[in-house]
């Protein structure tokens, strides 16, 4: 291959990643799902975006990335599916991730986690799924390090490859609080408690870089004394 042709190919390679990416997508990852029939009523909601009525394939993995269930469902044009993840993992107790793909047309997805004990309804929550293949860098725009607050950085593998993640913790003023390196197994996820790394009471921002595979993330914060639980997705850089 001559130099001109190689240069041309290189330039095409550079152009490709800049092209449009949208929020509706063919493939999604739900960072976190729970099947625990005695405690949780969970819903996997998958919605058609383009009226194409695709067949959606779901693969359920535990936190170590082991495939624990799978299923295929027909999604009605302009309709949605509301599925119980438990039915696909034989109602076993599982904490893991869900990978969803559509055979045609764009879809969107979300996960709802309801608590069966009415006294725990304040923990009911929902999180939107992340478009695959995920990110190489993430920002948790806020975290709490406090023994009285349950706070978790939830990092899920999105591209089927082991990812070594480096998490750098900073306080609100930008002071470096330390870093951690953890392995997120292919198709699995890691749940990290900021307190265990920062070891003092503070709030801040966490910057995450992955090596080897891509990841997506959520931040969960719950406080029993104030009876609230919130979840939101981390910002990412493709």
């Amino acid at each position: 291959m001559n130099r001109t042709r190689m240069t041309y190919l290189l330039s095409v390679f550079l152009v490709l990643p800049v092209l449009v990416n949208a929020q509706g997508s063919r493939e999604f990852v739900v960072n976190h799902f729970v099947s625990d029939p005695n405690v949780i009523e969970s819903h996997l909601v998958i919605t058609d975006v383009e009226g194409k009525g695709p067949i959606v394939t779901m693969k359920f993995y535990d936190n170590d990335g082991n495939l624990v269930g799978e299923g295929k469902e027909l999604l009605q044009p302009f309709g949605k599916l509301n599925l119980d993840p438990g039915e696909y993992v034989k109602h076993a107790v599982v904490n893991g991730t869900v990978h969803i793909s559509a055979d045609r047309g764009n879809i969107v997805a979300e996960y709802w986690q309801f608590y069966k004990d009415p006294e725990e309804s304040w923990k009911n929550t929902t999180a939107i799924a992340v478009s695959a293949p995920g990110f190489s860098k993430l920002v948790a725009p806020h975290f709490v390090s406090d023994q009285d607050v349950e706070a978790y950085l939830v990092l899920a593998s999105t591209d089927g490859k082991d990812a070594v993640v480096t998490i750098r913790f900073y306080d609100d003023t930008g002071r470096n609080l330390g870093k951690a390196r953890e392995l997120v197994k292919a198709n699995g996820k890691r749940i990290l408690k900021p307190w265990e790394y920062v070891k003092h009471k503070t709030t801040g921002v966490a910057f995450i870089e992955s090596d080897g595979g891509r990841v997506a993330g959520e931040y969960w914060q719950a406080q029993e004394s104030k009876r609230y639980q919130v979840v939101y997705p981390m910002g990412g850089i493709k």
Partner: peptide, 12 residues
């Protein structure tokens, strides 16, 4: 049931 949830809508 005593819960409140909210999430972003996606573009299409």
């Amino acid at each position: 049931e005593k819960y409140q949830v909210a999430h972003a809508m996606l573009g299409s």
